[in-house]
Amino acid sequence: MDFFLEIVVAVLLVVGSLMSLIAGIGLITFPDLLSRMHAATKPQVLGFLLLFAGLAIHLRSWILVPVLVLAWGLQLLTAPVSAHMIGRAGYRTKHVAKETLHVDELKKVISKHSEATGNTGAVRKIEGSKADENEKP
């Protein structure tokens, strides 16, 4: 039984580290910000799940499990939010190669909004940044 569990732990640790290597290779080879974002979230959820499971099995302690579940749940909650913010900032600052997109739903929303307000996207964004400056003391 112990030998079997050791094999399981070894496989979990190696595959969990492999996720980080995949993220690194993806960061080097992918051409675009959005595709790099897709690669960068690999170690965040699946890799940490495998590493934490391997750690908990290897140390044979149930006390670890709530802390590890807390760390993994934090990753699970914050990964989509930060990816959303980075993708939105990349779209606004034109770092997204638009010809590679099959569906562009944000463009529809922005054009509808600029028709309603009579502004182009650029003017609206400058107004938004001025409003942000006014909020600062």
Partner: peptide, 24 residues
Amino acid sequence: ILDRVLALDVILLIISSALCLDMA
């Protein structure tokens, strides 16, 4: 700068993974 932030985020995750390996 967004690519750099993304890569630095991944480096932080790699450090955490290395700490997990060390604890193991």
